[in-house]
Amino acid sequence: MSDQARKRRLTSVDVAREAGVSRATVSYVLNDTPNQRIPEATRRRVWDAVDRLGYAPSAAARSLRSGRSEVVLALLPDWPFGRMVGAMLEQLAVALADVGLIFVAHPRAGSRRPVAEIWKAISPAAVLTWDPIEPADQAAMRAAGVKVTVGLFQRGDAGGLAVSEQRTGRLQAEHLAARGHRRLGYAFPDDERVLVFAEPRLAGVRSACAELGLDPPDVRTVRIDRPSAVAAVRQWTAGPDPVTAVCAYNDEVAVAVLGGAREVGVSIPTDLAVIGVDDLPLSAIVDPALTTVATDSGGLAAYLAAAVIAGLADEPAPRYPGSDIVELIVRDSA
């Protein structure tokens, strides 16, 4: 090809010219069109031309030909994304790519554009959100050709990711109660952006305490800094009936509690047991090593991919994994 041709965007016409076939033949080969008898030697010539030219058909063109978008759009909320969510997004992208779908994640943090403008501009086949999807928004997406909508968090007890988050809190409280602790504290985060996680986890702790005949947890907000952690530990351990174990929102908050306990002179786990969430790498190397609850990000990614694929194929949605994707990891802190 000429240098001028290489500077412009390659098209199927260029592939056809390079392979010495018609443009229709290129289309049949690239789209694996059924009921078209293309000799194997011709197919090889087309794919060899694609490789030589570095040709990649646009998503828009493929959508027009197939009548369906190949894009799965994830609308990411305004969160500080941790290790688990990052791993889940990577695994989800791989799972969708394996079936020919393109995963696009759009962070909403700092975005001034309405959500509707985002999905309308991309015209995806499916939309994933962490926030509940309003019925009116679902209807608008359906009318625009979005075939699948998945909201990870649903309101109330309707299901979704909140189910496994509640199970996370229950696992924390059940483990501490099994170790003989009767007065539990809860280290709540000070970041409103993560309330969608923190509230169901705390609800799980409260529910477990009620079922086990324990007092409600002593909830205190703990920032990830020394003064806040020190103040919380002092309040938990003061008085004639002190808290003897703390469920922390996540591992980072739990490590702050460990630091506050060290500053106050409270021994972990003898005087105060601590359990976190997320199984961050630091949880295994702090002293004492942190007991925590881990979420199987791969299992969650597999569920989401299966839900999208089933929806696009008009098949029943898979069963949500629920408590199957959370696991207690026992170390030295509790």
Rank of each mutant, 00 (worst) to 15 (best):
S2R: 10
D3R: 01
K7Y: 08
K7R: 14
K7D: 06
T11N: 13
A16P: 12
T25Q: 04
N31V: 10
N35G: 10
R37D: 14
A41E: 15
A41Y: 02
T42V: 15
R44G: 07
R52V: 11
A56Y: 00
A60P: 04
R62M: 15
R68P: 04
S69P: 02
D78M: 07
G82I: 12
A95T: 03
A97P: 01
L101Q: 11
F103E: 11
P107I: 12
R108G: 14
A109Q: 14
S111T: 15
R112G: 11
A121W: 05
T129G: 14
P132I: 12
A136Q: 08
D137W: 01
A143R: 10
A144Q: 09
K147E: 15
V148S: 14
T149E: 07
G151R: 12
Q154C: 09
R155S: 04
D157H: 06
V163A: 15
V163S: 13
R167T: 14
T168S: 15
R170D: 02
A173M: 12
G180A: 03
R182L: 00
R183D: 09
L184E: 09
G185E: 00
D191F: 00
R193H: 11
V194G: 08
F197A: 07
V205K: 11
R206K: 14
C209G: 02
L212I: 05
V219D: 05
D225H: 04
V230E: 10
V230L: 09
V230P: 01
T237I: 11
V246W: 08
N250C: 06
V253W: 01
G259V: 01
V264N: 06
S267H: 11
A273N: 10
I275Y: 07
V277D: 00
D279F: 09
T292K: 11
S297T: 11
L304R: 08
V308M: 13
D324L: 12
I325C: 00
V326R: 05
E327C: 04
S333H: 06
A334Q: 08
A334R: 06
